[in-house]
Simulated assay, not measured.
Amino acid sequence: MSRDIEYGNLMHQAMRGLIRTVLKDVQDHGLPGAHHFFITFDTTHPDVQIAEWLSQRYPEEMTVVMQHWYDNLDVTDEGFSITLNFGDSPEPIYVPYDAIKTFVDPSVEFGLRFEAAEDEDDDDESSAETPEDPTPQPDEDRSAADVVSLDSFRK
């Protein structure tokens, strides 16, 4: 029986571990300097917990900003919970790491994006990329961001 090394899944685990480590540090010490995060996640993920009105407003995905005001950040091995302000209305949310689609810290031009692979060989594997900054930044030059793509390593 043939066994393959699932590099895409291993890369996703490593990238999610990096997010967990960063959020744990913020939980323990706060956001340093100008650092702030744009986190986009799948609102249809079965373990995501958001208010019903947020679910209706963002039926597929939403991006939250962790910057000036946040409260009750609790980082676990499976995900994180945080209270954020939505139009002067504090709302608690819970996001499992495997629901995250993008994690960006624009203060240092760092971004991670999790993408589902095309069904090239009927695989259920995911591809892992660290692309250019995925946050919308009109008329700004994004060429300074480091880009690493795993496409060149695939068969």
Rank of each mutant, 00 (worst) to 15 (best):
M1C: 07
R3F: 05
D4R: 07
D4T: 07
I5H: 06
H12V: 06
H12N: 01
A14Y: 01
I19D: 03
V22W: 02
D25Q: 11
V26Q: 13
D28A: 06
G33S: 15
A34N: 15
T40Y: 01
F41N: 00
H45L: 04
H45K: 08
P46Q: 10
P46E: 07
D47W: 00
D47V: 01
Q49M: 14
Q49L: 11
I50L: 15
A51L: 04
A51G: 10
S55F: 09
Y58C: 13
P59A: 06
E61P: 01
Q67H: 08
Q67N: 15
W69V: 05
D74S: 09
T76C: 02
T76E: 03
D77N: 11
D77S: 09
G79I: 00
L84T: 09
L84H: 11
G87W: 14
G87F: 09
D88H: 10
S89T: 13
E91Q: 15
P92L: 15
I93S: 10
Y94V: 11
P96C: 14
V104Q: 14
D105E: 08
F110T: 04
E115L: 05
A116N: 14
D123K: 01
S127C: 04
S127V: 08
A128R: 06
A128K: 05
A128P: 05
A128I: 08
E129V: 03
D133I: 06
D133P: 00
P134N: 02
P134E: 02
D139I: 05
E140P: 00
A145W: 12
V148M: 00
R154W: 12
